[in-house]
Design a protein around this nucleic acid. Structure first.
Lengths: 101, 101
DNA sequence: TCGAAACATGTAAATATATATATGTGACGA
DNA sequence: TCGTCACATATATATATTTACATGTTTCGA
């Protein structure tokens, strides 16, 4: 008899909220938006486009990675980041649209 | 010559992140989920269904109201809450799905 | 108009997050 | 193997959020 990890609704809400919290920051929201459509971008690319310091962006990338939003892959000297769940850009569009309206 | 309030991309991201932050909490995520489809629910109804104290739920409702997520309307002794932007439940579904996967 | 029902707000302590800056580490080429 | 490019992590302080609990306000019916 396998023990399925059926989380309670409350546990699911806690995990979902934790992931959402990771995205709920202006810089991190922008990063997620920049990775739409399965795009992979390295740190230099990202911090250049964002106009922020490298350490700042690395810090935010670490938060997104640790909370399950992003994955990373090294290619030589560069580390590329991409969305673990491509659907997550829906959140960016939805919240931006709701803000504008 | 009318002065259109064209916010910078950064300002939009800040507003969007602030709204997202309001939703990024297990209790508030649950509340938003309970208001899907234009449903209106009063405070007694909500704190009963959530199994939480009245003051706790009122506190979270105030955060959601102040950040533009919910609207309220009084009807006699009851205050009904509902989503200002019905689309926001998309966020609940999206983040829950991504968490499960 | 008094009391109770329904809801809101205030306060304080614990905890988490943000921001800035400094330093550390891994990979590659000369 | 040494230097540098690309990136990660550490640390400290400031600020915000969470949580719990107490108290305040509004509305309606008796």
């Amino acid at each position: 008899m396998t023990m399925t990890t059926d989380r309670t609704e409350q546990e699911i809400m806690e995990e979902a909220a934790a992931m959402l919290k990771a995205v709920a920051h202006p810089v991190r929201l922008a990063i997620v938006g920049m990775l739409e459509g399965g795009v992979r971008r390295n740190v230099t690319d990202l911090f250049g486009a964002l106009g922020l310091e490298q350490a700042v962006v690395s810090h935010h990338l670490a938060i997104l990675r640790d909370r399950g939003v992003l994955s990373q892959e090294r290619e030589g000297k560069h580390v590329f980041y991409f969305l673990r769940h491509p659907r997550l850009t829906e959140i960016v569009h939805c919240v931006k649209d709701c803000c504008m309206a």
